[in-house]
Simulated assay, not measured.
Amino acid sequence: RAPRDTAAVKPGPPGPATPSAPAVAPAAPAADAATVTTPQIQLIPATPDGALDAAEEAVDLLLDSGRTPGDVLVITTGEPHPWAAHELSFGDAAYWAQHDAGDDVFYADAAVAERAKSRAVVVVAVNGGPESAAATALAAAHSRAGALLIVCGEPQRINSVLGAGV
């Protein structure tokens, strides 16, 4: 990942995140396979146009706090993340091979999120798209997030989708 030219933001205490200082959980030891955990959910308020930037900032904070890139899955509901679009230009097989390697942050569109494997942290950028894409992304993210689910988007839209079955 290339360094970003942004002001340093320190992770805050657990709880609701604010747009200027989203809280991120530090790396945690792997849970026993028999233990089923519910991920902590954090909301970062953002407009659809700003959701991707908010997700990128969250990923940067996660990596800065000790998470490994392979711990993180990012799902988008509108336009695909530029990394995903670029990698898909090399073909579907190469794109999913990078996912299966599990050694880097992986970016997926809501339409293919069901195919992604679980990761410790899932970040969802609600960056547009139909309501069904947001519902699909949030359901997939919730079922794949081991420790932390971070959702970047408009709180009212997210809460209405989360209340509908996640």
Rank of each mutant, 00 (worst) to 15 (best):
D60N: 03
V9T: 03
R1E: 11
L52A: 08
H99N: 14
P39W: 07
Q42P: 04
A101P: 08
V9I: 04
D109P: 06
A54F: 05
A93L: 15
T6A: 07
Y95R: 08
L52I: 03
A125E: 06
A135S: 14
V36A: 13
N159S: 15
P14K: 12
A101G: 12
P14D: 10
A30I: 05
S143K: 12
L138M: 14
L63S: 01
G70T: 13
V151Q: 06
P11T: 01
L43A: 07
V151S: 04
A28T: 11
G66N: 02
A147W: 12
P29T: 09
V72Y: 00
D53Y: 08
T38W: 10
D60T: 00
V74Y: 08
A51E: 03
K10R: 15
A84I: 02
D53E: 13
A164S: 13
S143N: 13
V59S: 00
A7P: 09
A97N: 11
A97S: 11
A133F: 05
P130E: 15
G163N: 09
A23V: 02
S20I: 09
P48S: 11
S89Q: 10
V72M: 00
V24S: 01
I41P: 07
G102E: 11
T37I: 09
R1Y: 10
V105F: 02
P14W: 08
P26E: 07
T18M: 04
P69M: 02
A111G: 05
A139C: 06
Y95L: 09
A7H: 07
D60S: 04
P3Y: 00
S118R: 14
E87W: 15
D5T: 03
K10V: 12
S20C: 06
V72K: 02
I158A: 03
W96T: 06
G165S: 08
G102W: 12
A8F: 03
A2H: 05
G146K: 03
T6H: 04
A116Q: 12
E79T: 14
A28L: 13
P29C: 07
T76G: 07
K117N: 14
Q156A: 15
A164W: 05
A145G: 11
A46M: 07
A133G: 04
S89I: 02
L73A: 07
A27G: 06
P26T: 03
A33V: 15
E114G: 13
W83L: 12
G66P: 05
A28E: 08
D64I: 00
A55Q: 09
E114C: 12
L149Y: 04
L88A: 14
V105N: 00
D53P: 05
L61K: 00
Q42E: 11
H86K: 14
A34C: 05
V161H: 07
V36E: 12
V121R: 00
R144W: 09
A93Y: 13
A27S: 07
L61N: 00
P16T: 05
A141N: 04
V161D: 07
D92A: 09
V124C: 11
G129C: 04
A113N: 01
T77S: 02
A58M: 04
R67T: 04
N127W: 01
G66W: 00
A147L: 15
T37K: 15
A164C: 05
P16R: 11
P3D: 04
A134I: 08
D100A: 12
D100S: 11
A139M: 08
S160L: 12
E114T: 10
T35D: 15
P130R: 15
C152D: 03
T68A: 14
